[in-house]
């Protein structure tokens, strides 16, 4: 069948912008999504193929157009402007899950800061044995908290609406639970405000880490569609390395008057290109995190700083 001229022109335009090979795959995925929408229409109305194509050529990320992004074995809903889960994050989350050995009789608590779509917390909940993990996700954006909630339900994870469960109640749960909460980690009292239940066994985060100076150079599909609050890692004009959130997290972990992590609890933070050594230093010096490891992503970039909290 010969496509209508406008469609053909769009196909040519797409090939020009992403390359012939990538375009071929993207077209296939769009057709598949039209035939078999990955997300129910109630959550993401499926556009027609032509609409998809036009939006893609206009620079919108494919994930927002299709409404979903696979993340490990999960299919997550994605919705602008909440950050689209990245394959680097997928990789280290799976790796982290393999290192944890919780059971229903020895369950763990997880705190995921800057949770966004909820991807890290939800994948951990999915991969760990039922009843062995209870995750709380924090985000400053209402759109993110709502999406995280929707994703929990969509992935069949038990979502708790009335605040995080008490440690003492963990044994009651046969399934893993996820509690997404709206809170601003810049607020010094956020732990109390959000009614969190520290100390946690695990702290994970993929905080915004792009230096302000690099923001303008980002591809349009990132800059024009994804929430800058999920991307820019500089909060004041003073520092410009995109490390503000690591300082904040280190302060949180280092505060021994109200320990957020249990002794020897695991902290795992995703970092931007070239930031790993500096983040490791911050965690070590400001929060006495020890046994620090730096994990590389599949593209061989230093991507995650993992360590253990001191007593």
């Amino acid at each position: 069948m010969i496509p209508a001229p406008s469609t053909r022109q769009l196909v040519v335009a797409l090939k020009r912008s992403v390359g012939a090979r990538a375009a071929e795959l993207e077209l296939k995925w769009m057709r598949q999504a039209v035939e078999q929408p990955p997300i129910p229409a109630s959550l993401h109305p499926t556009p027609t193929f032509e609409e998809m194509l036009a939006r893609r050529v206009a620079g919108e990320p494919l994930q927002y157009i299709l409404g979903s992004q696979p993340f490990g074995p999960l299919d997550l809903i994605v919705r602008p402007p909440v950050l689209i889960p990245r394959p680097e994050t997928e990789d280290w989350t799976i790796r982290l899950s393999e290192r944890l050995r919780p059971t229903k009789s020895k369950p763990i608590s997880i705190l995921d800061l800057c949770t966004g779509s909820g991807c890290i917390a939800l994948l951990l909940c999915h991969l760990l044995p039922p009843g062995s993990a209870h995750a709380t996700g924090i985000d400053v954006a209402e759109s993110a908290v709502q999406l995280a909630k929707d994703n929990g339900a969509f992935c069949g994870i038990t979502v708790l609406d009335n605040g995080p469960p008490l440690c003492a109640d963990f044994p009651k749960w046969d399934s893993n639970t996820f509690t997404p909460l709206l809170a601003n980690i810049r607020d010094p009292a956020f732990v109390i405000a959000a009614n969190l239940r520290p100390p946690y066994d695990i702290l994970t985060a993929n905080p915004p880490y792009i230096p302000k100076s690099q923001y303008d150079t980002l591809p349009g599909s990132v800059k024009d569609y994804e929430d800058p609050r999920a991307l820019i890692g500089d909060l004041d004009s003073g520092s410009a390395q995109g490390l503000s959130f690591y300082h904040m997290i280190a302060a949180l972990v280092g505060d021994k008057s109200r320990p957020i992590l249990k002794s020897d609890g695991i902290i795992a933070l995703e970092v931007g290109d070239g930031q790993a050594q500096e983040v490791a230093r911050i965690l070590h010096e400001q929060a006495q995190v020890h046994h620090i490891e730096i994990w590389r992503d599949p593209w061989d970039k230093e991507r995650v700083v993992v360590g253990r909290s001191s007593p």
């Binding site: 992403v18 990538a22 795959l25 993207e26 995925w29 990320p61 494919l62 994930q63 950050l83 689209i84 990245r86 680097e88 994050t89 993929n206 915004p208 880490y209 792009i210 690099q214 980002l218 591809p219 599909s221 990132v222 994804e226 999920a230 991307l231 995703e270 970092v271 931007g272 290109d273 992503d297 599949p298 593209w299 970039k301 991507r303």
Partner: peptide, 15 residues
């Protein structure tokens, strides 16, 4: 993994 991803992570959302 195929192709270079530049800085990767949050910098890139291409599949």
């Amino acid at each position: 993994v195929m192709r270079a991803r530049g800085a990767g992570g949050q910098h890139v959302n291409k599949t």
